[in-house]
Design a protein around this nucleic acid. Structure first.
Lengths: 246, 246
DNA sequence: GCCAAACGTACATATATGTGAATTTATCTG
DNA sequence: CAGATAAATTCACATATATGTACGTTTGGC
């Protein structure tokens, strides 16, 4: 069950991140198609808790810096080493595609750092974006770091659906693709989950964290050069990763 | 009306900001005394939206860096000029008390930047903290920047309550205190709202934003030296504020 | 390797909550 | 400056939602 008002808080936050300016109750209510009265209650709650304020008289609401304070406190724990962000910046610059760091979350894979392509046609991903772990290059690069038992446990929770033509729709199909990936030296996906989207990924264990790096973009651009992209990723990781790292 | 599940999202976020480590469903449910089933729904919602993930197998939930991404986007708009944070850092260091920047929000005043005292007994305030605008030194320093008409409009919404012995409980009392503040050259408060708490504040208009600076601490420490603190604030502002500023 | 205890998940139902209509308050216009 | 218009707020009621209960799953102890 989805908790509506919890989701609404996030929607409001995303709204302000886009709008980048204060918004009145009416504007927010209209934007989301919410009743004014409900919007009033929500905004009042967020204000009361110190997360929204009215910077100018009658100038509407805006988030307080409290979000930033909290987000910083939370993100200071186990921050990604700086070379990891440098890695995807460089990969994105070199390939012209979107490069990301991905972490596991149950049966899903979550983007935890993203550098977007600058191309007009590009893979649009954001931090927090989620994709099925078994139906994506980056996800399978995570699965490669699991033991067989761990994978088996996961498989039981996965609901196999045919997202695209090449989606693996059985445990055996996933395991086969994992074996191929090992042989190939990297993971790849061609529209497994999102149409027209292709990507190359490799595992990126950091400390005891199981992460992966992925470069993804439209199939017609990535397709011809997957293996080049994959080896670029591998070489760049080799170069940037501190030699002493665990 | 307070929207419970909206507030709960914030509580969870604050919980993680304190805990600074992943927490399982059970831990979170127990911490707040929430039913497991409700907690499950909430966590599922936050996960689905990409704000929570499970970094390790069976290692519990933790916020994704998405919070940070959004908070940054939001806070990049009209950031406080760097000298403003330097101002309160210096004031806190010099006085040993908590120094803050405060903004108006309806009948309340909100802390938008805080440097906390290092003293064992200190004023504990955080960004997002709210106090009644009429019953605080910093709030009245905001009111001084309002026109009489604007103040009158505000007064109608204020619910005058006797928070402490010196709380102004009428429009006339507030106006009188504002006159005193002008004569004195700064605003002060002795337990107007919080017991044993005293502070000195002055207006700090920045661009078209009406802000104020306040130094606050326990009455026994601040009391004897309010006017010294106030003039220190004024001098420091004069020194740090760019001369060309609007 | 088994058992027990803890944890995570699904679902029907009572209830807290979101909503539409009405009221008050503020802003715009001529 | 008054009348009109739009926004913000309040409140009672129907309904969507949080929860108690029950079930399945995982883990750690022996």
């Amino acid at each position: 069950m989805i908790v509506r008002q919890a989701a609404n808080v996030l929607e409001i936050m995303e709204f302000f991140a886009q709008a980048r300016k204060p918004a009145t109750l009416a504007e927010i209510a209209d934007h989301f198609g919410w009743p004014r009265s409900s919007t009033f209650n929500l905004l009042a709650t967020l204000s009361e808790k110190g997360y929204l304020y009215e910077p100018r008289r009658r100038g509407g609401y805006y988030p307080t810096p409290r979000w930033l304070t909290l987000a910083r406190m939370v993100s200071e724990v186990e921050p990604l080493p700086p070379w990891v962000h440098a890695l995807i910046s460089e990969l994105s610059a070199e390939t012209g595609e979107t490069a990301s760091i991905v972490a596991p979350s149950g049966v899903m894979a979550v983007f935890i750092d993203v550098v977007e392509s600058q191309a007009p046609i590009r893979y649009f991903a954001t931090v927090g974006h989620r994709i099925p772990i078994h139906a994506s290059a980056s996800g399978r690069a995570l699965l490669l770091q699991y033991s067989k038992e761990e994978r088996d446990q996961l498989y039981r929770k996965i609901e196999f659906r045919q997202y695209g033509m090449s989606t693996p729709i059985s445990i055996e199909a996933v395991e086969a693709e994992l074996r191929n990936s090992i042989a190939r030296g990297y993971c790849q996906s061609f529209g497994d989950y999102s149409r027209d989207l292709a990507g190359a990924a490799i595992p990126l264990p950091i400390g005891d964290r199981r992460l992966s790096v992925v470069v993804a973009g439209p199939e017609f651009r990535i397709g011809p050069k997957v293996s080049d992209v994959a080896s670029l990723i591998a070489r760049t990781v080799d170069r940037l990763r501190p030699k002493t790292a665990a």
